[in-house]
């Protein structure tokens, strides 16, 4: 029985440390910080997006996810600084998208973008703004 008691205490202890140190590293007993940063009611909402480009055509939206580019939006958002400094990290996403669309020409470029919505009094205000963050170009 002793080891069972110790196991409970250990898990609660790690969970407490993870929470107080804001560490996700201690998964599955890390900080439970989903939706924990309160958004300023007069701030903005940043929505990360992907756009593909073929030849001289217009950019078109590409969904995130394992069945599209092989990775979720949140995975990309949490690696944003690394992707900005090395756009080549988007190459496997483009490759996965091309693999899933063999009937179409391969992508010439994959753009990581952000749609920014301004808030006023806790609700959307004005038109959303599209900002290009980083672009991967096919070799």
């Amino acid at each position: 029985m002793a080891w069972r008691l110790l196991a409970v205490l250990l898990c609660v202890g790690v969970l407490t440390v993870g929470g107080l140190t804001r560490s996700n590293d201690l998964f599955p007993f890390g900080v439970l910080d989903q939706f924990s940063s309160g958004t300023d009611p007069d701030g903005e909402v940043v929505n990360t997006c992907l756009q593909g480009i073929r030849g001289d055509g217009e950019p078109f939206d590409i969904r995130f996810g394992p069945r599209s580019v092989g990775i979720e939006r949140a995975d990309v958002e949490n690696n944003l600084p690394a992707i900005e400094s090395d756009p080549q990290l988007l190459a496997p996403l483009a490759a996965e998208y091309d693999r899933r669309h063999p009937e179409q020409e391969p992508l010439d470029a994959l753009v990581l973008c952000q749609r920014i919505t301004s808030l006023q009094g806790g609700t959307a205000h004005g038109e959303e703004e599209l900002v290009e963050v980083v672009r991967w170009k096919a070799p």
């Binding site: 969970l15 407490t16 929470g19 107080l20 804001r22 900080v31 439970l32 910080d33 989903q34 924990s36 940063s37 309160g38």
Partner: peptide
């Protein structure tokens, strides 16, 4: 335990 980061972050 999801209350803790809400307190710390906000």
């Amino acid at each position: 335990f999801s209350v803790v980061p809400k307190l710390l972050y906000s």
